[in-house]
Amino acid sequence: MDWRDRLGRVGELLHEFYVVRHRGALARERRQEDDLFMLLVFSEMMGIENPSNYYTLELLPLLYEGFHEWHLRMGMDHSPLEHFRCC
């Protein structure tokens, strides 16, 4: 590996070092948005009145697989919903 390759490698690492933080921040923000979405959809199950409980049922099959990760992230080891078993 000559010095040009080495320098290129260092440049790449610096770039990555810079970009990864922003990427992480954006990804985190996105995840927060998705978590909020989950909360809105599952709010009725958590006792918050939700006028659209019936209508959001059709989202359930689409969201179910993300449900486990969501409740773990929310700091709950088990499903917070007593009638909604997860793990």
Partner: peptide
């Protein structure tokens, strides 16, 4: 936000 993340991922 997802798209922005993808763009940074390009390299």
């Amino acid at each position: 936000l997802g798209k922005a993340v993808d763009r940074l991922r390009g390299r």
